[in-house]
Simulated scan of single mutants.
Amino acid sequence: MSDRKAPSLSNLVQRFFLEHLGQHRAVSRQTVAAYRDTLRLLLGFAAQRLHRTPSAIALLDLDAPLLLAFLDHLEKERGNSVRSRNARLAAIRTFLKYAGHHDIDALATIERALAIPQ
């Protein structure tokens, strides 16, 4: 564990969109919208599953079992195709890779989540 306080999930998400996608990666508006929609769906699912508000969710809560349940939810309850599911997973993986550079305490959780196959 590091001595520095880990950034909040909301702070990580904000920096991911503003700094990483907006400035460093210069991705299209469509990509930003797709990533935004994915994280919105994920945080809504996690809030319901964990019985918390989205602002009370931590990066460590986004573990592999929760992500697998979310992906299953996308396919079975929302009727998403495998292609859409994999696009959502790619967006989540991009966010988690970014988050891993900023929250060292969450690296083990992130590593297990990144091991989820397409």
Rank of each mutant, 00 (worst) to 15 (best):
M1I: 06
M1Q: 12
M1F: 14
S2G: 12
D3K: 15
R4G: 02
K5M: 05
P7Y: 02
P7A: 01
P7R: 03
S8F: 01
N11I: 14
L12S: 03
Q14H: 13
Q14E: 13
R15Q: 14
R15I: 09
F17D: 02
F17E: 04
F17W: 01
L18I: 15
E19K: 04
E19R: 03
Q23I: 07
Q23E: 14
H24Q: 05
R25T: 06
A26M: 13
V27L: 01
V27M: 08
V27K: 10
S28G: 07
S28H: 07
Q30V: 11
T31P: 12
V32D: 02
A33Y: 08
A33S: 15
D37C: 09
T38K: 05
T38M: 02
L39H: 03
L39I: 06
L42D: 05
L42F: 09
L43C: 07
G44D: 00
G44K: 06
F45V: 09
A46V: 06
A46C: 06
A47P: 10
A47L: 10
Q48W: 08
Q48G: 13
R49S: 13
H51C: 11
R52I: 00
T53F: 07
P54C: 15
A56Q: 07
I57H: 09
I57F: 02
I57N: 03
A58Q: 07
L59A: 03
L59W: 04
D63K: 11
D63M: 04
D63L: 01
A64D: 09
A64E: 15
P65R: 12
P65S: 09
L66W: 11
L66Y: 07
L67Q: 01
L68Y: 11
L68V: 09
A69D: 08
A69N: 13
A69R: 14
A69Q: 09
F70I: 00
L71E: 01
D72E: 15
H73F: 10
H73P: 04
L74Y: 07
E75G: 10
K76T: 14
K76G: 07
K76A: 13
R78F: 00
R78Q: 14
R78E: 10
G79V: 06
N80P: 04
S81A: 12
S84L: 11
S84I: 02
R85F: 05
N86E: 08
N86A: 13
N86L: 00
A87D: 03
A87N: 12
L89V: 11
L89N: 06
A91G: 04
A91C: 15
I92S: 02
I92C: 03
R93I: 05
R93T: 08
T94V: 12
F95G: 08
K97P: 06
A99G: 00
G100K: 12
G100I: 05
H101V: 10
H102D: 01
I104M: 14
I104C: 07
A106D: 00
A106C: 11
L107V: 07
A108Y: 05
T109C: 14
T109P: 01
E111A: 13
E111R: 13
E111G: 09
E111I: 01
R112N: 11
R112V: 08
R112P: 03
A113P: 02
A113V: 02
L114Y: 10
A115F: 04
I116S: 11
I116G: 09
I116A: 04
I116P: 03
P117Y: 01
P117D: 13
P117M: 02
Q118K: 15
Q118L: 14
